[in-house]
């Protein structure tokens, strides 16, 4: 047999070996093998940080038009804010109800301080939008107390949950990820449902398992539920808006408003308890 045509030719052997290693990686990853998990954590950390360093200059360069626009519109915005602040001040001093309301908010902020102690601030180092996943990587890992399932918030709104913990970084599964399913409480009656990511739909989200004949209302707040034993109860997820009822298909359409812009999320807070 000619050595050149042999199946055991060096090239074929290398191809076979690499395909086998790839299949082994997939197998070990799915079965969460302990040693592979540690190796993967090291690989993930190094790729996340090197990707951050390499893409940082490109991101900054791409942001230059945004910075220029920001400077141009800054004066205009400042003027608008000044007018709004004056109006707000006038309303507060004029209206007793608003003063009481303000005191109530201040009390709530004081209460929130205790709540804040349970969180760790983290910097977003990578954001990913792909057909298989929608996630972000933060610069806090196992050593900082990160655990799988920890809720991640921005402006007191839930943006996702920790999906994978490495040594020096963690991956956050965002709410619009196809694998994201969060137990929630909706509206004044705190009706239970599942808030899931749906990348194929226009709103990118879907509220499932609502009781039959339950109708959403614009302004209904969505809060997390602790029914799964992982999430803390009462974290704001979003607010329902633009509710429309299509009688022909007997179905509601709606949008969800969030208190943050995902693409501008540079820092987040992670609940550690």
């Amino acid at each position: 047999m000619n050595a050149k045509n042999s199946w055991f030719e060096q090239n074929n052997l290398r191809v076979f070996l690499l395909f086998s290693v790839t299949c082994l990686f997939i197998y070990l990853d799915n079965f969460n093998q302990k040693y592979f998990k540690n190796t993967k954590a090291v690989i993930n950390d190094s790729i996340a940080y090197s990707s951050y360093i390499i893409t940082w200059p490109i991101k900054e360069a791409l942001n230059i038009p945004g910075y220029v626009m920001h400077i141009v519109t800054l004066n205009k915005e400042n003027e608008q804010i000044r007018i709004l602040q004056e109006e707000k001040q006038k309303l507060i001093t004029d209206n007793k109800f608003l003063i009481d309301e303000n005191k109530k908010i201040q009390r709530f902020i004081q209460e929130e301080k205790i709540y804040q102690n349970e969180t760790i601030p983290a910097k977003v180092i990578l954001r990913v939008n792909a057909i298989t996943a929608s996630s972000m990587t933060i610069n806090k890992g196992a050593g900082d107390g990160m655990k799988i399932g920890n809720p991640v918030v921005k402006n007191n709104n839930l943006i996702g949950q920790i999906e994978e913990v490495n040594y020096k970084s963690s991956r956050v599964k965002l709410l619009n990820d196809i694998n994201s399913n969060i137990p929630v409480l909706i509206g004044e009656l705190l009706t239970q449902a599942i808030f899931s990511g749906d990348p194929s739909s226009k709103s990118k989200f879907n509220i499932q398992y609502l009781p039959k004949n339950f109708l959403l209302k614009s302004g209904d707040s969505i809060y997390t539920s602790n029914i799964d034993g992982i999430l803390k109860k009462g974290i704001l997820v979003g607010t329902v808006s633009d509710v429309k009822y299509d009688e022909s298909i007997e179905k509601q359409s709606y949008s969800i408003n969030f208190n943050y812009e995902l693409h501008q999320t540079d820092y987040v807070s992670v609940f550690i308890n």
Binding site: F25, I26, A133
Partner: peptide
Amino acid sequence: SFFSMFILGLITDSISGIPFGTSSLAYM
């Protein structure tokens, strides 16, 4: 090469968070 495809696949999988080796398989 096959090896560079394997490495590129691992980088892709690590960034997007899908099981390690999936993209390597596709690239190879």
